[in-house]
Computed example of a mutant assay.
Amino acid sequence: MTTSPESQAIAERQLCGLVNGLAQRIADHVRERAAVLGLTAPQATALREMTGPMTMRELAERMCCEPSNATFVVDKLEKQNLVERRPHPVDRRAKHLVLTAEGTALRERLRALLAEGSPLAGLSPEEQGVLHGLLERAITSDRG
């Protein structure tokens, strides 16, 4: 059974609406949980993504933003004694971003808060895996 271009367009529009709706719910959730800890959503995102020492460029990629935006966020986190810039072990031009002990503790509190009432909590781990795979495939698809 073939579908008409019009029904395909409607289905795509509905799917885009659902993806955008989920993204908005996740953004709202992060913003609300970050505020509990006195953080902005970008600061919370940076802390969540800092799973170990990394460069500003690596953090920016994880945050899906430009390095200059990540630098602004890290500057604020550094002033709060949550992140340190250290010499990169092999690249003298780069710095490694490292969480301080206080930053690590706050990251753990943040992770616990983000897990509470997450928009994805209603999905089983298997369903989350399927959704992850489908979204990744849609994002990396060569089709236009």
Rank of each mutant, 00 (worst) to 15 (best):
E84V: 07
V90S: 15
G17D: 12
R137S: 10
Q128A: 06
I10D: 05
V74D: 05
L123T: 03
L59S: 03
G122V: 06
L97S: 14
L37S: 02
P67S: 03
R13F: 15
K79F: 09
A115H: 01
A94F: 14
Q24H: 06
G122Q: 01
E84S: 12
R92P: 14
N69P: 14
G52I: 00
A44P: 04
A101N: 10
A105L: 01
V83L: 07
H29V: 03
L131Y: 07
G21F: 06
L97M: 07
M56S: 14
V19E: 02
R57N: 03
E6L: 15
M50I: 11
T45N: 10
V73N: 05
L135Y: 07
T71A: 15
Q128I: 02
H132N: 06
K79Q: 15
T100W: 08
A34W: 04
L114M: 01
E12Q: 13
H132A: 12
T45S: 11
G129Y: 00
P42E: 00
D28F: 12
Q8R: 14
G144M: 15
R93P: 13
L114K: 00
R109P: 06
L110S: 08
R107P: 11
L113Y: 05
G122D: 05
L113R: 06
V90F: 13
G52K: 02
V74W: 14
P119E: 01
I10R: 07
S124Q: 00
G133R: 09
S68N: 13
M50G: 04
R143W: 15
T55M: 09
S141M: 00
E66Q: 14
L99T: 07
V83A: 02
S68Y: 09
L131H: 04
E84K: 13
E61S: 15
V83Y: 02
E49M: 12
I139T: 06
R111I: 07
A70F: 13
T51F: 12
L110Y: 05
R62H: 10
F72P: 09
A23R: 09
V74K: 08
H29L: 07
R31E: 05
D91S: 14
V36W: 06
K95S: 15
G52T: 01
M54T: 02
T55E: 03
E12G: 15
A23V: 06
V73W: 04
L114Y: 04
S4Q: 03
L135Q: 02
E84R: 15
K76T: 11
V98W: 03
M1V: 09
G21M: 07
C16Q: 13
V90G: 08
A70G: 09
I26V: 12
T104Y: 05
G133H: 09
P53L: 00
L15M: 04
S124D: 04
G38W: 04
R85S: 13
L77K: 04
P67L: 03
A27D: 00
E78L: 08
R62N: 01
G17Q: 02
L59A: 02
P67M: 05
M1A: 10
E136W: 11
H88F: 06
V130T: 01
E6S: 12
T45W: 04
N81V: 10
V90Y: 14
A44Q: 04
L82G: 03
V36T: 08
V83P: 15
V130H: 04
L22H: 07
E61V: 11
C16P: 13
R13W: 12
L123N: 03
R93Y: 13
H88L: 02
M1Y: 10
Q24T: 14
A27E: 11
L97C: 06
T104L: 08
